[in-house]
Amino acid sequence: MVAVDGLSFEVNQGEIFGLVGPDGAGKTTTLRMLAGVLPPDSGSAKVAGFDIVADPEAAKPLISYMPQRFGLYEELTVNENIRFYAEVFGISKQDRINRAPELLKAAGLGPFGDRRAGQLSGGMKQKLGLVCALIHTPKVILLDEPTNGVDPVSRRDFWRLLYDLVGQGVAILTSTAYLDEAERCHRVALLHEGRLLFCDTPAELKKNLQGAVLAVVSAQPERVQQALAGAEGIKTVVLVGDGLHLVVEDAQRRVEELRKRLTDAAAPFDSIEEVTPTVEDLFVAAVEEEKKKEGR
C-alpha cells in the first residue's frame, strides 16, 4: 500500500501550512520524510534550501521536528528538559540562558520551570515540547498533530505561539485531524489515503464546494440524521456540535422539503438555514466524490 502518492506542495517563509486529513491520510509519513528520518521511495524534496533526499543531514540544524509523542523526559523539570535539548542542538549555555525565558513566557510556562514534566497537563507538555523544539531558532518547524488530545484553551494558546513564530519569518508545516484547525492555517492541503484532494487558502477551498450548506440545529442530531436518510438532493451529511451540516442542491427548495420531512417524522429540530461552508464540509464532500469515482 502506498502511504503518500504523488504529493506536491510548497511552504513559504512566514506561513502556516496545514496537512489536513484523517488517520491514514499520509500526514505523519510526509513529515517524517521532510524531517529526513524516513527516506522516500521516489521523488525529491527541499527543506530550508537543502535536498533532504540527497543529503538529509544538511538541513537538520535548521529544522525542528515535533512528532506526535515528543520525547520529553518526565523525571526532569521543565528547565532541565530545555537544557537537555539545547545541548543536543549544540546551543551554548549563554544562548540558552538568553532564549529560554523568552520562550517559556510566550508559552505561559514561566512559573513552572522547576516542575517535573511528568506533572504537567497534556496541553502544558505540548507547549513545553514546542519550547524545546524552538530552543535552537529553526527556520522550518514540522509539527505532527501537535494539538491532538489537548484541551480547547491549550489549543488556542498553542496556535497563538505559532502565529508569533510566523511573525518572525519561520515556515511552519503542521498536520492535524481537526478540520476546524484548517481555518487557522494560511494554506491547507487536504489529504485522503495519501493523495492530495485540494490545496489552497481556506477561503478559496470553500469555493470548490459543489452545492450549498444547510445547518440543521437540533438537540438530537442522530435522530435527525436518521429521518433524513435517503432524502432527495442531499449530497453529504456532517454531524456538528449542535446539529448537522447538509450539502444540498438548490438550497431554497430543499429547506421546505426537509422541514416537512423532519416534522412528519417527529424529529426535533430548532431551525434549518443556509450557512457559509466550512473546510470540513468541503473535505467530506470531496471524499464522498472520490468514493463514487472508485465505485465504493
Rank of each mutant, 00 (worst) to 15 (best):
R254H: 09
A231T: 06
S218K: 09
G211M: 13
N208Q: 15
Q252T: 06
L228Y: 03
G241M: 07
G233Y: 03
V240I: 14
R253Q: 11
G233P: 10
Q226C: 07
G243T: 08
A215I: 02
R261L: 15
A189H: 02
Q210Y: 02
L196A: 11
A229I: 06
E257I: 11
V248H: 06
A203R: 04
T236I: 08
N208D: 10
Q226N: 12
V217G: 00
A215M: 09
V248F: 10
I234M: 09
L244F: 12
G211C: 11
A219I: 01
C185D: 04
E222F: 01
A219D: 15
S218V: 10
V237M: 12
H186N: 15
H245C: 13
A229E: 09
A203G: 00
A203P: 00
H186Q: 15
D200W: 03
C185G: 08
G230Y: 08
G243P: 04
R253E: 12
L190D: 04
T201L: 06
H245V: 11
A227R: 10
L190F: 02
C185W: 03
I234N: 04
V188K: 02
C199S: 14
D242A: 11
L244P: 00
H245G: 14
V238L: 13
E257P: 00
A251Q: 11
C185T: 05
I234L: 13
E232L: 10
R261A: 14
L258H: 08
G233R: 10
V224L: 08
R187A: 04
D180Q: 03
V216A: 09
Q210D: 13
Q226K: 14
E193H: 13
E256W: 03
E204Q: 11
V247Y: 02
R184V: 03
S218H: 04
C199V: 13
D242L: 06
L191R: 11
G243Y: 05
G211T: 07
A212K: 15
F198G: 05
V255F: 00
L214I: 14
A227L: 09
R254W: 01
R254E: 14
E222L: 08
K206F: 08
V188N: 02
V216R: 11
R253N: 06
G243W: 08
A231C: 08
E257H: 05
R253H: 09
Q225I: 01
V213Y: 10
L197K: 06
K206G: 01
L228S: 01
K207Q: 13
A215K: 14
E204G: 01
Q226L: 12
T236W: 11
E232A: 15
G241E: 13
L196T: 05
A215C: 07
D242Y: 07
D242K: 14
D200Q: 05
E256D: 14
E183K: 06
L228C: 01
K260E: 09
V237P: 09
P202H: 01
V217F: 03
Q226R: 13
R187S: 02
R261I: 15
V255R: 13
R184H: 04
E183G: 04
Q226G: 05
L209S: 07
D242R: 14
N208G: 02
E222K: 10
P221K: 04
Q210S: 12
E193T: 13
E249K: 12
Q226D: 14
K207Y: 01
I234W: 13
A231K: 03
L214E: 07
L228H: 05
A182R: 05
T236K: 11
